[in-house]
């Protein structure tokens, strides 16, 4: 089983990103679950989602304490929450940033400027850049699911083509 913990802020699309990840993995023929963990917070507060991918039916509902991969949609969270908590020794970190923040340098970290990509592709809703579809492209590049399944998942959930474009841009831009 591959376990992913996704950190974002309420309103940034973390919950949708988690759903898209499950859908893409599912389109790869895997079992997947995505569980947002809601606190009593309002918009803007840090939130976590847990995504599990496996070849068998997933029966676990509890939180992920030892992730294989940590995804950080908002790098400012790194200063508030220990996003690396419990990360497996060979675990990876993907951060939305143009360069890897210092705090993440001790881990197998990757970065891609998802916010920049959203702005470049004009993927902006109510003044905020949309990160949930670009991150799917980056995750496909990391090998979480195939590029085709990433495309399929995004197309299934979003009609607006900018989403797909941004995801593919993230796929290209992420260096692995």
């Amino acid at each position: 089983m591959y376990e992913i913990r996704l950190h974002s802020r309420g309103g940034q699309g973390g919950v949708t990103a988690a759903k898209l990840m499950a859908l893409a993995a599912f389109r790869d023929g895997k079992y997947a679950t995505a569980a947002p963990f809601y606190g009593a917070e309002r918009r803007g507060a840090p939130i976590v989602s847990f995504i599990r991918i496996d070849d068998q039916q997933i029966k676990i509902y509890s939180q992920i304490h030892q992730p294989d991969l940590v995804v950080v949609l908002d790098s400012s969270i790194i200063n508030l929450v220990n996003v690396f908590d419990g990360l497996k020794p060979d675990g990876k970190v993907l951060i939305n940033a143009s360069e890897i923040p210092k705090a993440a340098s001790g881990y197998k970290s990757y970065c891609v400027d998802l916010t920049g990509i959203a702005l470049k592709t004009d993927l902006i809703v109510a003044g905020s850049p949309i990160l949930n579809t670009p991150v799917i492209g980056a995750l496909a590049k990391l090998g979480l699911f195939s590029k085709e399944s990433a495309r399929a998942a995004i197309a299934e959930m979003f009609a607006d083509e900018r989403n797909l474009k941004a995801a593919m841009m993230a796929y290209e831009e992420l260096v692995v």
Binding site: A22, A35, Y61
Partner: peptide, 12 residues
């Protein structure tokens, strides 16, 4: 159905 644990989880 269990609140959040099942109501909000995404599965097949």
């Amino acid at each position: 159905l269990d609140g959040f644990t099942l109501s909000h989880i995404t599965q097949q």
